[in-house]
Design a protein around this nucleic acid. Structure first.
Length: 259
DNA sequence: ATGCCTCAGCTCCTGAGA
């Protein structure tokens, strides 16, 4: 049973690519980030026709998330309970006995800015909530666009990006603190090609030169860790015309619909 | 290079992304 995450950078632009991808990759769950649309614009019917139930939570211009699933999601939550936020960044639901959290982590812009401070506060709020969710739901997947690299292996130019946004020690501290709750970076559980990334800048032929970052992650709980079969970054959609700058990340778990 | 490319918006430039 496959669970996937994809930052689509405007669902208005990318909807045909998402539908094509779902047809080729009929995953159980797909969470989207940066839909960049208000709720009245969300293409629920197109997803229904493709065989997916949907929950969505968006806003104009920025942010926006969605949860697509083959079977209906239960106990849906939007944004982080207890953390006041103007931005639509989180959607959560239970599918196949598994708590699924899809998240668009703040970018943070640059260390020392207000946006960076917001990112740090948001990460604290997320962690407190995920800790509670884990206590109630041993089977949990936390996936999305984290806008944080774990270490130099996730960075095409570690020297050049040292202490830059996505690569600072403060951000990585929060990422490790999530891991310390009892989560695992499913991608690194398996042998991967060196220089594997999930995002490439639109500029300077960065994808062609593989100048990227691994900032999209699928974290799985202790209970799910022994059930993981594989985790891959699907670079195929990045080769489309007008691609998102991010690629989907897909984990395969040994779960059944009855689980 | 305080840019490069892409997207959205009170759209012919600007802010933001990462």
């Amino acid at each position: 049973m496959k669970f996937a995450t994809w930052n689509v950078n405007s669902l208005t632009v990318r909807l045909p690519q998402v539908l094509d991808w779902l047809q080729a990759n009929p995953v159980e769950v797909l969470v989207l980030q940066e839909t960049k649309m208000t709720d009245d614009k969300f293409p629920a019917q197109a997803f229904q026709a493709a065989g997916y139930h949907a929950h969505w939570f968006g806003q104009k211009t920025y942010n926006g998330v969605a949860l697509l699933s083959r079977t209906p999601a239960a106990n849906v939550v939007k944004n982080i309970p207890g953390f006041a936020d103007d931005m639509a960044r989180v959607i959560c639901g239970t599918v196949a006995g598994t708590r699924v959290i899809g998240a668009y982590f703040p970018n943070g812009q640059a260390p020392g800015t207000d946006k960076f401070e917001y990112k740090m506060e948001w990460l604290k709020g997320l962690r407190a909530w995920v800790k509670q969710e884990l206590a109630q739901h041993p089977q949990l997947v936390l996936m999305g666009d984290y806008n944080i690299t774990f270490d130099d292996d996730d960075v095409w130019d570690p020297q050049g990006m040292r202490d830059q946004i996505h690569c600072t020690e403060e951000e990585r501290y929060h990422l490790r603190a999530l891991i310390a709750l009892g989560l695992h970076d499913s991608y690194r559980m398996f042998a991967q090609e060196p220089k594997s990334y999930s995002w490439w800048d639109y500029r300077d032929f960065a994808f062609r030169r593989n100048r990227g970052l691994r900032i999209d992650h699928v974290l799985i709980s202790n209970a799910l860790q022994p059930l993981a079969r594989n985790c891959v970054i699907d670079k195929a959609p990045r080769k489309n015309e007008r691609p998102s700058d991010h690629a989907p990340v897909v984990v395969d778990l040994e779960l059944t619909a009855a689980a």
